[in-house]
């Protein structure tokens, strides 16, 4: 990193010294990052983030666009591996294991840390095959009946079963946007991950579909650890238990959602929450 560039960036953080709030948890964390830097070529996108994601909590990550929250999310299941120029420094632990360790198998990792994307991206296959895709490639089921059950359970958990149970063999691309996104969630659940990462899962959906997904997130939080990136502060307030505020690649403040939205400690967080920028 070019020092002069870094200096100018630093200067925009006149008030920032280190993350405010309880970024590290007292108890056992499902995932934790320690001093994590992310680079795209020469450009640094994430600066020394330390953050824990607790078991069965919903962590919302908010911040103005370009603040690095999506990039950070994608490092949590090594989705950035597909980008040649992307380099990661520091540690990211899943149940105490470093996921960037060379002994860590990325395929198995992603079966443990699933991901739901911004735009619904069902495969050009039938509804059934979309959900069955994960269990099949990983060889998680041995019999067809077992697979049927897994597919049904996943679809039920994603509360889309009633809408699609009669047309499981039809192409998934024929579903509405909201249904597609719930199908994608079902697809993720079907491999029984420990953590689900959601990258602005409602940004392409209408308000009604969004409401259904939000309900679903609340239900899922009973069994899964969820980290969600969102553009909408209201959504973060509705679905999350804890909120992290990112700004220009730095984690500015972390705290319980209530506190962040009512009494943030940091000036930048406050400015963002109150709509001075963003």
């Amino acid at each position: 990193m070019n020092t002069s560039v870094k200096d100018t960036m630093e200067s925009t953080f006149a008030g920032w010294t280190e993350t405010v709030g309880n970024a590290m948890l007292e108890g056992e964390a499902r995932m934790s990052t320690r001093n994590t830097d992310v680079f795209y070529g020469d450009k640094q996108a994430i600066f020394g983030v330390d953050l824990d994601i607790g078991k069965n909590e919903v962590l919302a990550m908010i911040g103005p666009s370009g603040c690095g929250k999506s990039t950070f999310l994608r490092t949590l299941n090594r989705m950035n591996d597909t980008i040649d120029i992307c380099k990661i420094k520091g540690e990211i632990l899943l149940d105490g294991e470093n996921i960037y360790d060379k002994n860590m198998d990325v395929v198995s990792l992603r079966a443990r840390v699933g991901m739901v994307f911004q735009k619904p991206n069902p495969f050009p296959k039938s509804i059934y095959d979309n959900v069955a895709y994960g269990p099949r490639i990983h060889g998680l089921v041995s019999r067809r009946a077992e697979l049927d059950e897994v597919v049904e359970t996943a679809l039920r958990k994603a509360s889309i079963w009633d809408e699609v149970k009669d047309r499981l063999d039809q192409p998934a691309t024929g579903l509405s946007g909201g249904q597609q996104q719930r199908l994608c969630i079902a697809r993720t659940i079907a491999v029984s991950p420990e953590v689900i990462l959601m990258d602005e899962p409602c940004s392409a959906l209408d308000p009604i579909a969004t409401a259904r997904i939000e309900e679903l997130i609340a239900e899922l939080s009973e069994n899964y650890t969820i980290a969600i990136v969102t553009h909408s502060m209201q959504q973060a307030a509705r679905v999350s238990t804890r909120t992290a505020y990112f700004h220009l690649g730095r984690l500015i403040e972390v705290g319980s959602t209530d506190k962040i939205f009512t009494a943030p400690d940091h000036k930048l967080t406050e400015d963002y929450i109150t709509g001075r920028f963003g």
Binding site: V107, S108, H138, G139, E152
Partner: peptide, 25 residues
């Protein structure tokens, strides 16, 4: 949501590690 259906994924989760490992190679 019936108990039986809930179990399908949970049952699968119990054997997940070994089944995945078996197929990985």
């Amino acid at each position: 949501m019936t108990d039986q259906n809930l179990n399908a994924i949970e049952r699968m989760a119990m054997v997940k590690q070994e089944r995945m490992a078996a197929k990985l190679g």
